[in-house]
Simulated scan of single mutants.
Amino acid sequence: MIDFYYWPTPNGWKVSIMLEETGLPYALKPVDIGAGDQFKPDYLAISPNARMPAIVDNDTPDGPLPIFESGAILIHLAEKAGRFIPTSRVGRKQCLEWLFWQVGNLGPMAGQLSHFVNYAKSVQAGDHDYAHKRYAGEYNRCLGVLEQRLRGRDFILDDYSIADMISWPWVLIAKPLGQSLEAFPHVSRWRDTIKSRPAVRRGVDLGKPMRRTGPHTEAANKILFGQSARSLGG
């Protein structure tokens, strides 16, 4: 059994989709990031970065194994299930390249853009214009990289894989981030193809009742956006 520490966000969907695709048994462990659950000592012992998602694989030869960071989790689950990661040397190399591309480029750029689209509206007008434009431009650039990769192919690799699962959630929300996919027809087609998969729909819907339906409270904003090294205790 896999303990899945989760809150419904694009980062969490990467792993919820993989768990649904593989059928690996898991127990959902909600971590309310607006309430500060991610800073509790028990969770920090699993995820020292205090971020979602994380897992504990209770079925390994070495006993319960905690894993944090979505890329590492996806590699572990793919190897455990024997699915969604190439077995050839070249294929595995390409898979790792695109996993690292997501965690170093698409994910951070989209995440920062999301912050300025969704949470910085109360900042005095003009104070965050540069940052908003910077991350919007980088998100657009990443979509261009993905568009070129998907030209003439159905998926990022030869077959559907964790390389697709890790990037797809941040493309799913392109419209709310203010980015049309009209200029990216291959990305748009890829997005729709993956969205049609039943396991993907189940993964995105996981924990749907927990999603925020209105503005964060001032207390939640302080927890989410007022973090520093002191937030981790110690």
Rank of each mutant, 00 (worst) to 15 (best):
G178Q: 07
A110L: 11
W13F: 15
I162H: 02
C95F: 00
K195R: 13
R212W: 05
H132Y: 15
L74W: 02
D164Y: 03
P48H: 02
M165S: 14
I73D: 11
P48C: 04
T22R: 00
L157K: 05
Q124H: 10
A78F: 10
N105W: 01
F184V: 00
A229G: 10
V103D: 00
I85Y: 08
G63Q: 06
H76E: 10
H115I: 06
E21M: 07
A199K: 05
F155C: 07
A81P: 12
G36D: 10
Q124P: 09
N58W: 03
V187W: 06
I67H: 02
G152Q: 11
P209V: 03
D32R: 13
I75C: 13
R153K: 14
D3N: 10
I2D: 07
I75F: 10
G152L: 04
I173Q: 08
A78K: 10
S122R: 13
W7H: 06
K222F: 01
M1L: 09
T87N: 10
D59G: 01
F39Y: 15
V117L: 05
T217Q: 04
N49D: 03
F84Y: 15
D192N: 12
H132Q: 12
T9P: 09
V187K: 09
G23I: 02
I85Q: 12
F68S: 12
L146S: 03
R230A: 15
Q112T: 01
I17K: 04
I17C: 10
V123M: 12
I75A: 08
R51H: 02
G63S: 08
P64M: 00
I156Y: 06
F184N: 13
R201L: 12
D129T: 14
A78N: 11
I73F: 10
D164N: 05
Q148T: 11
T60V: 07
L157P: 05
I55F: 04
T60Q: 07
G207W: 10
F84A: 00
P86F: 07
D62E: 13
K175I: 03
D59Y: 00
Q124D: 14
G178C: 08
P198S: 07
R211Q: 14
N58E: 09
K121L: 08
I85V: 15
A35S: 13
F100S: 09
L106M: 14
D205H: 01
V145P: 05
P10T: 09
L99F: 02
A136Q: 12
L28S: 07
Y6C: 03
V117N: 03
F155D: 04
H216R: 09
L150S: 07
L65R: 14
D129F: 03
L96S: 00
S228Q: 08
V200P: 11
P108F: 03
Q112V: 02
L19Y: 07
H115W: 13
T9C: 06
V200T: 14
L143W: 05
H128G: 00
P48W: 06
V123R: 13
G214L: 02
A199D: 09
T9M: 04
S47G: 01
P30N: 07
A229I: 12
A174N: 11
R89H: 11
R211I: 15
H76V: 08
L24I: 13
N49W: 01
G178L: 07
I162M: 02
S180E: 15
A120R: 12
G36L: 09
G203F: 09
P64C: 00
G178W: 02
F68W: 14
